[in-house]
Design a binder for these strands. Structure first.
Lengths: 253, 253
DNA sequence: AAGTGGTCTAGACCACCGG
DNA sequence: CGGTGGTCTAGACCACTTC
């Protein structure tokens, strides 16, 4: 119902629709509830399905909706706060770290990482794959790049690859003095492999956190972590993870 | 049985197109160069314009392209690093702060901010509007919420509103002991007013940074800043702003 | 098999910018 | 004014999940 009249104001239909749906979500739906399917919704609002989808896309980007092919569209829970930066600098894999090391391989780093690491051309790096799961949902996938020169004492004591190898590399890293680190956050789109790990489609919006670890005056490790942008809120500072009430619509005061 | 399905999955056209275009941008275009228009590009690749646009949308999200209605599509420069978190906590408006205070008003805060501030129901707050411009480009719009109880000594010494008033409120804030702060970063979409200030269309992707300022055991101020997600990279830590070479495609190693 | 969201098409018109 | 990107339509088919 509620086919509100279109105004002469050139507000795009999909934007107006987004607002209407957003208000409906607040007042008439509960978390987890499934919405009518796109064809019905489009008909109800008197728009083409593509237009309706444009509105849903916005709401999904804002973390209000969750859409799954073959299943339907549901009302998303509030975003999960993920502590990504604390006051004290710590190595990845340190105590309290909830990441799960999945794999490790030795290869040449992508050009962008090589630039950050300032490694010699063609120098190989350990590439550790880790993933983060909270509340039963995969939220992040990480690639940790560690030049072989950063962990020289690593030998064949462990398996040459696999999760055990990954943990061994991290263990070696802990022995270094961590003198500092810095981070950058930017928007990206999930590559095919990351998307699969995050249970999303390729191109899904992700928050890319690039961290540099400094020791002995050098950059000894670089981490590139991709977080699901639809379900995550990255927290920094003293009280990382403390609840911040979420205002999904960012309504004007 | 081997449940690992390595079947050749048909890659969506728009995704493949994104990859092709991305590589073309790397090898055959320079920053600022104008691309052929969408109708020509679509024809050249033998796809519908909508499909071509889906690929361009991805690349714009990744900060590779810049599209302006009535003008054309250009190759975007690398993202600007914006220092948003330093090791030491500082009040907004402190020395070195490059934000430009634009306006100030007294009003009831939106529900989400009221929840964070834990203000009494209906207590009015000063709402300071600021904006950040770097390299001649608007990159962020901020709303600072400061309960009247946080700046009790503020009187009618200045104008009741406007930029001068905004600066007066910030000046009063400096007198408090800043005991701590924390931040959260999440993806959002620009409201109409923010979009206008950021020179974008409504719904444009933005990085929303919510900062809480603590003093005397309370939350004395809250900042909600929206950064253009297409052009900005938010930096935290020791060397905020130091160049990190950007890998726009996030190619696999 | 039925129903969902995801992709794609071939048009049309509109809002905006520049000369 | 012509050219650009932005919006919108009414279909079609595909990939996936569930029953």
């Amino acid at each position: 119902m509620g086919t509100t009249q279109l105004e002469s104001v050139p507000e795009p239909k999909y934007w107006h629709l987004r607002t209407v749906l957003s208000e409906a979500l607040d007042s008439e739906f509960t978390v987890g509830e499934i919405l009518p399917n796109e064809r019905d919704l489009a008909a109800r609002f008197g728009v083409a399905r593509a237009t309706l989808r444009q509105a849903l896309e916005q709401l999904e980007l804002e973390g209000r909706l969750q859409r799954r092919r073959g299943v339907g569209t549901t009302v998303a829970p509030p975003r999960v706060g993920v502590a990504v930066g604390t006051e004290q600098h710590v190595w990845p894999g340190a105590a309290g770290d909830t990441w799960h090391a999945a794999d490790c391989a030795v290869s040449a780093p992508p050009a962008s990482v090589a630039g950050i690491l300032e490694t010699a051309d063609g120098e190989a790096v350990h590439t550790v794959r880790r993933s983060l799961v909270t509340h039963g949902q995969p939220v992040a996938a990480e690639l940790l790049y560690i030049p072989e020169s950063s962990v020289p004492d690593l030998s064949a004591i462990d398996a040459p690859s696999g999760a055990a190898r990954a943990r061994a590399v991290l263990r070696e890293l802990q022995r270094l003095d961590l003198e500092g680190q810095d981070r950058a956050v930017e928007l990206g789109s999930a590559r095919a492999d990351d998307a699969k790990e995050l249970d999303r489609l390729p191109g899904a919006p992700v928050l890319v956190v690039t961290t540099r670890f400094f020791s002995e005056g050098r950059t000894v490790a670089v981490s590139v972590a991709t977080y699901r942008a639809d379900t995550c809120r990255l927290t920094f500072g003293d009280s990382g993870g403390v609840e911040i009430h979420h205002d999904p619509e960012r309504r004007a005061s």
